[in-house]
Nucleic acid binder design. Structure first.
Length: 959
RNA sequence: GCCGGGAUGGUGGAAUGGUAGACACAGGGGACUUAAAAUCCCCGGCCCUUUAACAAGGCGUGCGGGUUCAAGUCCCGCUCCCGGCACCA
């Protein structure tokens, strides 16, 4: 029976009671119980809880409460990540101190969080702005500094002109905008405090394998770190402009050489020139006033200057034409064959990656190829790619099919009259002419129509499956109807083809101009280009490589590197983490400089090194702490005359890199997190969060943990055993919520209207939680959940003295389903199962005992109303201290089950039968079923497929 | 371009290879009511043919093939959408 209730009164009452009783305080680790550390990302106290917070915190609470009722000791802490720009900006706007603004927001948000009714372990809370917290942030920084993991570096940094501060690489979006404010960042050269995250690049990649994280996050981190396995090889230089000059030779007299990094040392014999990045130090050296080795020094300098001025975006555009300039007066020696090869400077080589110098192998690298084409440089193929042919072989039977040899022929002889034809008749071919027209004939007709050629023979046909050997469909859809190519050859050239097969012709590379002029249509050129792509990137067996001919690429990589005295090494895309911020509201970097300017860590007894309050923190680009008289005096007082403080603060991602360590031991004044606490609580068993942290917070905190671990300060090398990413809640219009669109759902308003239980259950009901799906908020949908809870509220009116066996079966089935779904974060289907259950109960009634069981099952989802009903039912203790109901496996199986009956694989009716009935009985029942009898009578049964409890499929002999 | 993920009614979404569309929303019809809201009951993928009607049949999970007694699910090949990386050698 539907029965309304006053959610405001009920929820307030129980929230107060739970808080008074400390019902959810977790206390110290109880070794009698299994532990579960469930972490949600601590919020920034912006002053208002939004619906995303609800989705992030209230839904995982179902899981937490379930585990509590299952007897685990569950740590579910909450705190505040309270340093950062918004507080500072708000404070500037209001003319107050960020501290006051932050503290009042925390207070306000704690109340909002309380209205959620979550089972938070408030006794374990912490905040990054608490001096007792940031004292340890600073302490760990000093340990890193003392061990070389934090250092003052000089280099290009990302400067946000809007926020007036440096930001880290991870905090710059792909389009060059700032993660915080969205404005375009600029590059600046300035000294920076860095954390040596690159030291852990291998561990950060390798340790991912053991983590129970979604694959896409692991993959994104791998890509971000960007490990390339390859070799470093020295190319000696030979000077032609001023051979007697030795100024360019190294200080110790060794021969001048350029070091390149390559992932393809197997193609060394094909390296026909070198390219240096415009910023390469050798360019600087060779063009300074002491050296006279370049014939065209001025030209080179001019090019380098222009290249450096270009923005990253312009330089990163790989579609634009390659530019560069040759260094006249010097050549390099290819160590594999002692060939003298030219050296270029070109902006397609990046200074920040590898050694900033590359060996160019135009036959096997598209970029080098494009460059070589433009500058008319030598191109030498040294690897014959092995191409995958899956998909081709499938169509071989009875047909002449496109074999790799055929493709090679097109590629190697693009100047003959071979061409590719693309048509839409491939289905005729493969399907064997379903509409009657023979395949060969259909194709022939197409070709005549398309080309006008009449004297030809069809060599082969290939589906788009030929992708693996290099064919691609053009993007212009108007030109194609089905994705297929035919390889067609003019008849009088067949002779040539067979001679090629016999090896009578040698392989030559040709220019693209020749290719373009000979291939009939634009999309054929695309297919051609794509094939070249597969040559470029492919590995295979070596040619033109002397004693290495015939060797496999992979083997040759090591062998050739060894021969030329190079060494296998890795290079990474990841850069060190720049953490200094020229802003006020953050953790002061605990460093002081002596009168000589040398940096010293502030000793532990002076920590926390507090944030001074006597500053004007308006962002001007000058760090606000530089204006603090108090900080200056404090420094001199402690360390002496002429000492000065570091005036930068830390990136707030530092604060959040270790908060999970503080939660578990939040009152410890001797240590950031005690060994015992770490041993008994860590690692975090489950970390719920959003997708935006993939290559920021999640990467930083893994690094931080590894750094602590290396220094012997942390027990574990990985912080989070399991990660679940959730999606986004969209506005009712299906768009991302934003004030400008006017589609923002205010959770407080929703809670006032329908109650916390309803809001929470509705969020859980939208769809599976552990998938990054975005769900639109639906006003009707939430009303449906409220209706459900009102029916639950009236459920006691259906209590009867006894209930049917099948009703008990339904309850046990529901318990099973709900228990299983919760641990898979499929809260939506768990709720659905409970709805199905009460739909039944309202018709047939339930016993008092079943009613109690049902309430316990619902308790994690709707903690307030179930507590109310529990007490109304005469119980004394909180429902949240009850055990979660268990199911009896025997009782989850009903006496009968309705299964579908198929005849010849098509569903024709159903029968209701015991789940373990014998096949014979099932068939008999089907024969006696009026729906089915007619179809079965007088027919011979050829075969019966019977899966008890599932399906009965009767195959009839139709002949 | 490379890597990861996805596509099921009007909507969110259900389906260990076994009755596709559970559950819920929106919608339609009915009951109650002077009326409305609330509540309760019923209907609901598409199509066509046959039928007065009940019903029977055919087609349906982005597209094309395949495996199987049976495919949303497995295999091969594609299309489109979302996310990450991208002149990274």
């Amino acid at each position: 029976m539907h029965k309304r209730f006053d959610h405001q009164e009920i929820e307030k009452k129980w929230q107060t009671k739970w808080a008074t009783d400390g019902l959810y305080d977790v206390g110290s680790r109880d070794q009698e119980k299994e532990k579960e550390y469930v972490l949600v990302e601590w919020p920034y106290p912006s002053g208002n809880l939004h619906i995303g917070h609800w989705y992030a915190f209230a839904v995982p609470d179902i899981y937490v409460r379930f585990l509590r009722m299952k007897g685990k000791q569950v740590l579910f802490p909450m705190g505040f990540d309270a340093f950062g720009l918004p507080a500072e900006n708000a404070a500037i706007k209001r003319g107050i101190n960020p501290k006051d603004w932050t503290e009042s927001n925390i207070e306000y948000m704690r109340n909002q969080l309380a209205s959620m009714g979550n089972a938070f372990s408030w006794d374990k809370t912490t905040s990054s702005t608490d001096p007792e917290y940031y004292k340890w942030t600073q302490w760990m920084f000093t340990k890193f500094f003392e061990n070389g993991l934090a250092y003052r570096g000089e280099g290009m940094v990302n400067w946000c002109p809007h926020d007036n501060t440096v930001i880290a690489n991870e905090q710059v979006h792909a389009d060059g905008s700032c993660d915080r404010c969205g404005n375009q960042i600029e590059k600046r050269l300035m000294p920076q405090w860095m954390l040596r995250i690159t030291d852990f690049a291998d561990a950060l990649i390798d340790d991912l394998d053991a983590l129970d994280w979604p694959e896409h996050i692991k993959e994104a981190q791998r890509q971000w770190i960007g490990r390339s396995e390859g070799a470093e090889i020295d190319f000696e230089l030979f000077f032609t402009y001023q051979p007697e000059a030795n100024a360019n030779r190294g200080p110790h007299g060794e021969k001048a050489a350029l070091k390149v990094f390559t992932t393809r040392p197997d193609t060394l014999f094909g390296a026909t020139y070198l390219v240096l990045a415009p910023e390469h130090p050798w360019i600087t050296l060779a063009t300074d006033n002491n050296h006279h080795v370049l014939e065209n020094k001025e030209e080179v300098l001019a090019y380098a200057r222009i290249a450096k001025q270009k923005g990253d975006i312009e330089r990163g555009d790989n579609t634009k034409e390659k530019t560069g300039i040759e260094l006249k007066g010097v050549v390099a020696i290819n160590p594999a064959n002692n060939e003298r090869i030219p050296i270029f400077v070109a902006d397609y080589v990046l200074s920040g990656y590898g050694t900033g110098a590359i060996m160019a192998v135009p036959a096997h690298d598209e970029r080098d190829f494009a460059f070589a084409k433009k500058f008319d440089l030598k191109i030498r193929q040294v690897v014959v790619p092995r191409t995958e042919q899956k998909g081709i072989e499938k169509y071989q039977e009875g047909k002449e099919t496109l074999h790799r040899d055929c493709v090679d022929m097109i590629i190697e002889h693009p100047t003959d009259d071979t061409f590719l034809l693309q048509t839409d008749t491939v289905t005729h071919f493969v399907g064997g002419g379903t509409d009657g027209e023979p395949a060969e004939k259909a194709i022939r007709r197409e070709i005549v129509e398309e080309t006008g050629f009449t004297n030809f023979e069809i060599v082969s046909c290939v589906l788009e499956s030929a992708k693996s050997i290099g064919f691609r469909v053009p993007k212009d859809k108007n030109q194609i109807t089905n994705n297929s190519f035919y390889h067609v050859k003019l008849k009088d050239l067949t002779q040539v083809a067979s001679e090629i097969d016999e090896g009578k012709h040698t392989v030559e590379w040709v220019t693209m101009e020749e290719v373009n002029s000979k291939i009939a249509w634009e999309h054929h050129r695309i297919a051609w280009n794509t094939f070249l792509g597969s040559v470029f990137s492919g590995s295979g067996s070596l040619i033109n490589s002397k004693e290495f001919d015939g060797m496999d690429s992979e083997e040759a990589k090591i062998a050739i590197t060894e021969k030329v005295g190079g060494w296998m090494t890795n290079t990474y895309r990841l850069r060190d983490w720049s953490i200094g911020r020229q802003r006020y509201w953050g953790v002061p970097i605990p460093i002081v400089y002596d009168p000589e300017g040398k940096a010293h860590a502030i000793p532990e007894e002076h920590l926390p090194w507090t944030l001074p309050e006597d500053v004007d923190f308006k962002p001007t680009g000058v760090p606000p702490l530089a204006k603090s008289q108090e900080l200056k005096e404090r420094t001199e007082k402690i360390f002496g005359q002429g000492w000065r403080p570091e005036v930068e603060t830390m990136d707030t991602f530092v604060d959040s890199s270790w908060y999970f360590l503080r939660y578990i031991d939040n009152k410890n004044s001797e240590s950031f997190s005690g060994v015992e606490a770490q041993k008994t609580w860590l690692p975090v068993d489950l970390y719920f969060g959003g997708a935006e942290h993939t290559t920021m917070h999640l990467l930083y905190s893994r690094f931080w943990q590894k750094a602590l671990h290396r220094l012997g300060l942390a027990e574990h090398a990985e912080p989070y055993a399991r990660r679940i990413n959730r999606g986004l809640i969209l506005g009712p219009d299906g768009n991302k919520m934003s004030k400008s669109k006017g589609n923002v759902i205010d959770p407080d308003e929703q809670v006032t209207n329908v109650g916390a239980d309803t809001v929470k259950m509705y969020l859980a009901f939208m769809g599976p939680y552990a998938e990054v799906n975005n769900y639109p908020w639906d006003m009707g949908g939430i009303a449906g959940i409220r209706r459900f809870l009102e029916r639950v509220n009236g459920l006691h009116e259906h209590i009867t003295d006894t209930e049917a066996k099948e009703t008990t079966v339904a309850l046990h089935k529901t318990i099973k389903k709900v228990s299983e779904d919760i641990i898979e974060f499929k809260f939506n289907t768990a709720i659905s199962a409970m709805m199905i259950y009460i739909n039944l109960i309202e018709k047939v009634g339930l016993t008092k005992e079943s009613y109690r069981v049902f309430l316990c099952m619902l308790a994690p989802f709707a903690p307030h109303i179930t507590e109310e009903l529990w007490k109304t039912a005469g119980e004394k203790n909180s429902i949240h201290l009850q055990e979660f109901p268990t199911f009896d496996a025997v009782l989850t199986i009903g006496r009968t089950v309705t299964i579908g009956v198929q005849i010849n694989g098509k569903l024709r009716g159903d029968i209701t039968i015991a789940p373990d009935a014998a096949e014979e009985d099932a068939v008999n029942m089907a024969k006696n079923n009026p729906q089915l009898a007619e179809k079965l009578s007088s027919k011979i049964i050829k075969k019966v497929v019977y899966v008890p409890g599932r399906i009965l499929n009767i195959i009839l002999d139709e002949t």
